[in-house]
Computed example of a mutant assay.
Amino acid sequence: PLGDVRQECRGLARAAIRLDAPAMETLLEQAISDYGIVTAWEEVMVPTLHAVGRKWESSNDRYVEVEHMLSWQVSTVLRRAATASTGRPMPPVLLACVPSETHTLPLEALTAALSERGLATRMLGGAVPAEALDAAVRRCGPAAVVLWSQARSTASHALARHVAGVTFGLRGARTAPLVLLAGPGWAGRAPESGMLRPRGLREALDSLSRVYGEPVPEPERRSAAGPEPLGTDRPPMSPTAAGRP
């Protein structure tokens, strides 16, 4: 049961149970076209991923293939939506999972949503080594860095402090990126100077828009489902679908 959520969730869940990949792709693309990335993520993708995850957990490990295929289709449409060029020069937002963290779907949703607003992004993906992250920050000169941690065991506050302290640019006019601590792994500690901890996809997107001086859209009407998007303590999928061993 999906509760009081959009009708699209039920159709998507039925297609997932049938392993009907073309139908899933069509429904997901239609949701993005009709509602935009943020609403499609919060009110269609996440509730359906949660429902399929609960189905897997309550059925003695059955339906793992359903969750994997649904996660793949969600990732496919989000990456496709994030391919648009901004058409204007600007320092990018750099997005990465911290070392040992493999959950990437929430970052893919944020990447697509930033592209939808015309903001430049560089996505590094899952389990990025600290040295590689440091090198990418110095080479890209990003306006902001988003670090995703799904569990407290992967959240490295020392790494976040290091990234927030990396400076680049001309001598005498050096700057450092804003660091967004995204995901439930960062819970329990207040963000330090130069860092923010957004509570969800919408808040992360608005915070990053302000970095560029972009106008923040009026809040959209949200459904009664009470979606739990980017930075909540409830994971958007089970560890199996995220590729954990």
Rank of each mutant, 00 (worst) to 15 (best):
G200V: 00
L95Y: 01
S59W: 13
A225Q: 14
N60F: 14
A51T: 14
T39F: 07
Y212F: 15
E101W: 12
G36Y: 13
L105R: 00
A13T: 12
V145Q: 00
T83H: 06
L2P: 04
I17D: 07
S149Q: 03
S153F: 05
V38L: 13
A164Q: 00
D61G: 06
R222M: 15
L147Y: 06
H103K: 04
A224V: 11
Y212R: 07
S149Y: 04
R221S: 05
R6H: 12
I32H: 00
S100C: 12
V211T: 06
L230Y: 02
A242V: 06
S85Q: 11
A135G: 01
E57R: 11
L230C: 06
P219G: 14
M123I: 03
A127N: 15
S149K: 04
H68R: 15
I32L: 12
G243D: 09
R152T: 10
R139Y: 06
P229Q: 04
G183H: 09
L95N: 00
R139P: 01
V66D: 09
S207G: 06
W186L: 11
L170M: 10
G226A: 07
P235S: 10
V166P: 00
E192Y: 02
L27C: 06
H50T: 05
A187Y: 02
L19T: 08
M45A: 12
C9M: 06
R117L: 11
W56V: 07
L107C: 05
E67K: 07
P184N: 00
T232I: 01
W41S: 02
R152W: 10
S115T: 13
R152N: 10
S156Q: 03
L147C: 04
G185W: 04
A176K: 09
S100L: 13
T39S: 10
R122T: 15
S115D: 04
L2S: 03
R62K: 15
S149H: 05
S156P: 03
L124T: 01
D61E: 09
R62M: 13
R10V: 14
